[in-house]
């Protein structure tokens, strides 16, 4: 969808939908929100709905950051510590390397 052809109200509505959708454990919606509306929020000359769009983009970025840190921490922890967790590590893992603990 080309944002240039969309009216400002529709843009706000879209941004809001993506922002709210991200709360349903869907951080990628926040990622899309940030990437897609970044130009609209910060680069394009100001228009009526821009402050709201800007706030949504900011909040999406914060949410994305939290998810990123959380997932990154969990991934790092799992990759490095799974071998020491014994049975629980095996239950949590989807696929296990052959021949290594």
């Amino acid at each position: 969808m080309n944002l240039e052809r969309v009216s400002n109200e529709d843009k706000l509505e879209l941004c809001r939908k993506y922002y709210l959708g991200g709360f349903a454990l869907l951080p990628f919606l926040w990622l899309v929100n940030v990437v897609w509306f970044f130009r609209e929020a910060f680069v394009v000359p100001p228009y009526g709905e821009q402050p709201l769009i800007r706030s949504y983009v900011r909040r999406s970025a914060v949410g994305l950051g939290v998810w990123g840190v959380g997932l990154g921490a969990w991934l790092g922890l799992f990759q490095t510590q799974r071998a020491r967790w014994g049975a629980w590590g095996d239950f949590l893992a989807f696929t296990l390397p052959l021949g290594t603990p």
């Binding site: 049975a87 239950f91 021949g99 290594t100 603990p101």
Partner: peptide, 18 residues
């Protein structure tokens, strides 16, 4: 001669049954 099982029978049988 790469072997797939590790640690002990407990671990390898658990993994096989999972």
């Amino acid at each position: 001669s790469h072997m797939h099982a590790v640690t002990s029978t407990v671990t390898c049988m658990r993994r096989s049954s999972l």
